[in-house]
Design a protein around this nucleic acid. Structure first.
Lengths: 219, 219
DNA sequence: CTCCGTTTGTTGAAAATTCAACATACTTTT
DNA sequence: AAAAGTATGTTGAATTTTCAACAAACGGAG
């Protein structure tokens, strides 16, 4: 576990918890670490919401597919980010999404029961953990607000521009990269891929943006 | 405050807290109660995310409008439901939504600082409050997942059917009422109102549903 | 370096959505 | 009970999106 402390320091769940206490706590929580190769499923839709996941290395995609094969990407996560916590904390029977490794991933898994139903009133670190989880969930709600802001736009062009402007803001620059290829961006924006490509081409010709693959620049 | 205990008992924030302790706690939190007439703004977009709100009576709508006047309805809330907690807990500077009274409303407001930054490690009720807030936020994430599931569908028909099937499930019946009129439903589904009306008409002629105003029946 | 699989861009036709305008139904007010 | 205001349904034209199919560009493996 010691090798992961550096990353866990950046994890929202463990803020304000000293490193020496963190190791003890991970033991107490029964945290385990697993590895997933590229394209492997870290959590599968329909399986029990038993674990809270923390990405230690790599990146992963949170998505769902409806029964006509339309994939909808909810978000993309990187090292130190938490996933599955909402379903675990709400004690759902089954999770409604699939988490897939974009590249080889190291994942820490913590049983929800160890967080929700153990020693809640005894240990101070545990109290801090609950507090951190609460803050993390609050920011997750904001992430979904943003996604809804994007997909609530009525045209491909407006969805795309809303998304790109949010990314520019987040990366504090008019030049930035996005974590999606074209198909994935279309799946995030909930639009047709070819229509999205066409719209990017049109915006380029109008001098509104420049782009190459994952790189974008707003002009 | 005593008159509101009955409702607060159903509020997710105060589960597992005895009534006698609840009154003390509300004092300690500096909870205040305000009244809003129909159509009045309970929280305005852009104002500081200073308060967590609890609806004591009436109903309200959580919505946002983009700068071309397209309104997007995020959800509809009723008595004992909590609102604004995600923005308050994430300590945002400004809230990105507007909360409007559908009818005369009684609202309890609690300053976020009293929840987040006071006596966090002393008082047991407070610990329970944080825990409840965490659970509440987890279910809020699920609410947004559902909304995204609905609006990610590519056609008006699929959005509508997905929404109606979720409502039928939630109300455990093929006959149910929805909290929206046609314009509001269109704003929730992020589609054109007249197109929505046309689609409802078509589904009726196809024998898939029956509807009258807020009442629907899936066949 | 070449080959092969994947990603991205392009096109045109079909289908769906939006928009504006109006008719009808329903509610509330006076 | 009539009038005024609001909500809902309907229509057709304009716009946009989707879909399928293909071409071009790119990247990795050998």
């Amino acid at each position: 576990m010691k090798q992961y402390l550096e990353i866990l320091r950046n994890c929202p769940l463990f803020q304000q918890i000293e490193e020496e206490n963190l190791l003890t706590m991970l033991g107490c929580l029964g945290a385990k670490v697993e590895f997933f190769d590229k394209k492997y499923t870290i959590m599968a839709e329909g399986t029990p919401a038993k674990y809270i996941g923390i990405l230690l290395s790599g990146s992963a995609q949170i998505a769902r597919s409806d029964y006509y094969g339309n994939r909808s990407i909810l978000s993309n996560i990187g090292p130190a980010e938490v996933f599955g916590e909402a379903f675990a904390c709400a004690e759902m029977g089954a999770i409604p999404v699939t988490v897939i490794a974009n590249e080889p991933c190291t994942v820490m898994l913590i049983d929800r029961d160890h967080i929700l139903h153990t020693c809640r009133n005894q240990c101070g670190f545990h109290q801090q953990l609950i507090f951190n989880l609460m803050k993390d969930l609050a920011t997750k709600v904001l992430v979904f607000h943003q996604k809804i802001e994007v997909v609530s736009k009525r045209s491909t062009r407006n969805k795309l521009m809303t998304y790109l402007m949010l990314q520019a803001k987040k990366q504090s620059s008019n030049r930035f990269t996005i974590p999606f290829d074209r198909q994935e961006l279309a799946d995030y924006l909930e639009v047709d891929r070819s229509g999205l490509s066409a719209e990017i081409g049109k915006l380029s010709r109008e001098g509104i943006l420049r782009s190459h693959r994952h790189h974008f620049e707003l002009l």
